[in-house]
Design a binder for these strands. Structure first.
Lengths: 118, 118
DNA sequence: TTCATATGACATATATTTATTACATATGAA
DNA sequence: TTCATATGTAATAAATATATGTCATATGAA
């Protein structure tokens, strides 16, 4: 077996989490900024002109959705730097793909999403 | 000119609005349900087991994002029915596509998302 | 008239998300 | 030691989103 399937169709929960993570202007800008080049928290905060605590919160949402990864590294002058970089992701959204994802959605509400007689 | 471009790459604002609209389990289920077949508000509320006022709120979000359309029709027995159906949409998300969209994002925050020297 | 079915809207809770302020720790350089 | 740079977190405020309950109107059928 030579090839591996990478990031197959996401489950409903995964899709929802990605959508929740991306549905925010700050977080879209964070992704955009990191797509150019990886960065560390303080620098990123300056670039995006937002407070560090706020950026932290947004980064956590992105990371828990699997859209970015982070690693603590030591700079040459001995300072701890938390580097952040985007994960390569690809998500497609259409009525059909959402329908498919909904079948594995565990979040809230029972499963009466299907059809039903009048 | 024979062909028309349909729903070209969305602007940043459009993408954000679509993401915000889709990032909710109820609304994903609404889309899924309507993908099977169009429905009217009261019936949809029964199928999805949610109150009509709540469903209304969710439908408005979906409609203002352009993901569904609705029309008031008279049933054969004279009752007003608000029919709802999904619009055909297709949205792709990747770091690059988000980066592109961010360039036309007008929502909040200045434009320092780009690179900057250390 | 009364009942069951619709639509539509308002007021109000409740919950979650977003944002700010403040504080603590650690490093190298001046 | 003091300054500037990092990371990390706790507490709290403010803004939105989500959800419920209630009321009003209109229709056809019983």
């Amino acid at each position: 077996m030579k090839h591996k399937k990478i990031d197959q169709v996401p489950t409903g929960d995964q899709m929802l989490k990605m959508l929740e993570a991306l549905a925010n202007p700050h977080r879209m800008r964070i992704i955009a900024s990191l797509t150019h080049e990886r960065s560390y928290v303080s620098e990123l905060a300056r670039m995006l002109q937002m407070s560090r605590p706020l950026l932290y919160m947004h980064l956590q949402r992105l990371e828990s959705a699997g859209l970015i990864t982070s690693s603590l590294e030591l700079s040459s002058d001995g300072k701890a730097m938390k580097y952040v970089e985007v994960s390569p992701f690809f998500l497609q959204l259409s009525p059909e793909l959402i329908t498919e994802a909904v079948e594995t959605l565990t979040t809230k509400a029972p499963n009466n999403s299907g059809k039903k007689r009048k």
